[in-house]
Design a binder for these strands. Structure first.
Lengths: 165, 165
DNA sequence: AGTTTAAGTCAGCCTTGTTGACATTCCAAG
DNA sequence: CTTGGAATGTCAACAAGGCTGACTTAAACT
């Protein structure tokens, strides 16, 4: 399994089990930091990460359909429905019957929803910005490159599609 | 909020809200990939991510105490206890009363536990290795730099301490 | 007309987190 | 030696947020 800088060739030290384990643990700890700030804010409103994710992607693709959201989030419709129902009842999300296809519901953030979205993403971006600034542009490029290579191919396809939106 | 390459100075394009948002979404999608393989294996054994985390850190620091593990994992003792109890009952983890301080329990993986640990970390490392190889050594350095900058200071301290173990 | 699709709903289950209360054990300080 | 506090464990109850399965409604497609 180990893959250290053997006699063979170019330094592949970055692929040793030890290096890989450090990367794995870094992902674990960093993800905790990544979600910490929004989690604190959400708690004040009685929401969880699931609500955050829904709000994020509705803000990002206003008018998206429920099915669309389902495939991006990778959860069941029952799970998403519970979250959406709360957000709609609380007046943060609006559900609009489709005009072309009346079976579809198009989702939009209300003013209140957009306000919460801004609060959440401001906090998360602040953390990200600090990390990016501290690490520098080259590190950021590498960061993004590795993250993209780590995604499931299907999710990466989706991610790339999102970018060009 | 936006911070684009203003008139001021060196290109800070990598700090625009748009770039930050892409980074946030990349973290979200990449973390899914990161946990996907172990999750599949765990399901076969009727375990969840919480069990994986416990097994990982016990393997990494054999003989660690429960309190130690608690502060690394960041959960309550009740939560961890439920997980540990299952692992001990199933014969994957051994709990040894401390010799110096008999209140403490030192945790070790059994043979069976080490086997599962290997299966899990082989899968996770394979994903990591593929991503690292695809991205290249420089990207990996940047990846690690940004992740470390993203951690809470307290967690980063812990992470650094773990490395030199 | 019949089938498929989008969405929603109800019921129930599991994992994994949380609090709070309480028992046990045992080190260490008075 | 006694007592206070620390480390551990356990019980009970609860919540979020996943899941499956079954079923309805409405609209669209064929």
């Amino acid at each position: 399994m180990a893959e250290g800088g053997g006699p063979g060739g170019e330094s592949l030290l970055f692929l040793t089990d030890e290096q890989l384990r450090k990367g794995i643990e870094a992902m674990f700890f960093a993800y905790r930091g990544f979600t910490a700030d929004p989690d604190r804010i959400l708690q004040e409103y009685g929401y969880g990460r699931a609500h955050h994710r829904a709000i994020h992607f509705i803000n990002r693709s206003p008018g998206t359909t429920v099915n669309n959201l389902l495939s991006i989030l990778g959860v069941t419709k029952q799970s998403l429905n519970r979250v959406l129902r709360a957000l709609i009842e609380d007046g943060l999300v609006e559900s609009v019957v489709g005009t072309r296809d009346k079976r579809e519901r198009h989702l939009y953030l209300t003013e209140a929803g957009a306000t919460l979205e801004r609060e959440l993403s401001d906090a998360q971006r602040a953390r990200m910005r600090a990390a990016y600034r501290q690490a520098g542009p080259e590190a950021v490029t590498g960061f993004r490159t590795v993250l993209e290579a780590m995604m499931d191919p299907e999710l990466h396809r989706r991610f790339v599609a999102l970018k060009e939106n």
